[in-house]
């Protein structure tokens, strides 16, 4: 059934589409501007000739980033935290979530309340800092992993998903003599791929992006994650260091601004690459989260 639109409604549609196109432009302009700056010739960049498209084509800023040992150290710290952290996150989330999804479990309610309480009353900064200090984790990569080993919100998403799996399947496995740990690993886990992928991506992105923990717990430049390295580079504590370390301004077509642009892009690219996967799974996850509990 097609109803003829009034003039006002047509006008609104045009206005709506224009406004949304404008919103998209506002989102994309900063990304394109930095990308263009990172690929432009230095002369064009510092004379303000670059807007959204590279002027000339120059990869020297990237070469400089990739030749910088400090960058690589920070990059590998972040990769390590993301891989190890996410693995620990997933193990804890799945094994804690599984028993709590059993409605027959005695004490399930108090356990759930115990968890939800921590979402309302969050751990304060200084006592958390002192705890990490007492545990001897200051200036260790584990300080970036252990204090965030389990996220209550993700755990609840996991419990909600497990609750939807039919208990008969687990029962059949138990009859076949499988113990409960193998039931989790070989039955529950493979059946829960949608939530496993969603949560793994949630955790991985938060590890990749995390700079707050490093700001609190890390002062040693050798184990500074990428985000903190990037911040220091932008706040210019380090740009000149990097440039002098290279002492090659003559052979390369580089500038502090170009170097900053290139580093921003390098830190952004992994996120942009996994974004299509994230988008497919995250939206589902966010929906589950908002509809349930």
């Amino acid at each position: 059934m097609k109803i003829k639109q009034s003039f006002g409604e047509k006008l609104f549609d045009i206005f709506n589409i224009t406004l949304l196109l404008l919103t998209c432009a506002v989102i994309l302009v900063p990304l394109l501007h930095v990308l263009a700056g990172s690929l432009s010739e230095t002369n064009a960049l510092i004379h303000a000739k670059v807007t959204l498209w590279p002027v000339g084509l120059n990869f020297d800023n990237y070469i400089l980033v990739f030749q910088n040992t400090t960058f690589w150290r920070s990059f590998f710290v972040t990769v390590f935290i993301t891989l190890t952290g996410t693995t620990i996150n997933m193990l804890l989330t799945i094994f804690t979530g599984y028993p709590l999804s059993k409605t027959f479990l005695r004490g399930r309610k108090p356990f759930l309340l115990f968890i939800i309480f921590t979402m309302i009353f969050t751990a304060p900064m200084i006592p958390s800092y002192l705890l990490v200090k007492e545990l001897g984790l200051l200036n260790s990569v584990w300080a970036l992993i252990v204090p965030g080993a389990l996220a209550a919100f993700n755990l609840i998403l996991c419990i909600t998903f497990f609750r939807g799996l039919p208990e008969e399947l687990f029962e059949a496995a138990r009859v076949d003599g499988m113990n409960e740990y193998r039931v989790v690993a070989q039955i529950a886990f493979p059946l829960s791929m949608p939530i496993v992928v969603t949560l793994a991506l949630f955790y991985a992105v938060s590890h990749w992006n995390n700079y707050y923990s490093a700001l609190l717990y890390i002062t040693d430049p050798d184990i500074r994650p990428l985000q903190l390295y990037l911040y220091n580079l932008l706040a210019q504590f380090e740009t000149s260091d990097t440039l002098s370390q290279m002492n090659s301004m003559v052979t390369y077509d580089i500038s502090p601004q170009g170097l900053q642009n290139a580093t921003i892009i390098v830190a952004t690219i992994p996120i942009v690459i996994i974004y299509p996967f994230i988008q497919r799974h995250f939206i589902k996850g966010a929906m589950i989260g908002s509809l349930k509990e």
Partner: peptide
């Protein structure tokens, strides 16, 4: 397009603003 910036860290967003 509009969901993308959520996944970028604040340091990267700061980088964009700084450059812009």
């Amino acid at each position: 397009i509009v969901y993308l910036p959520h996944f970028l860290s604040w340091t990267i967003v700061f980088g964009f603003v700084y450059t812009l």
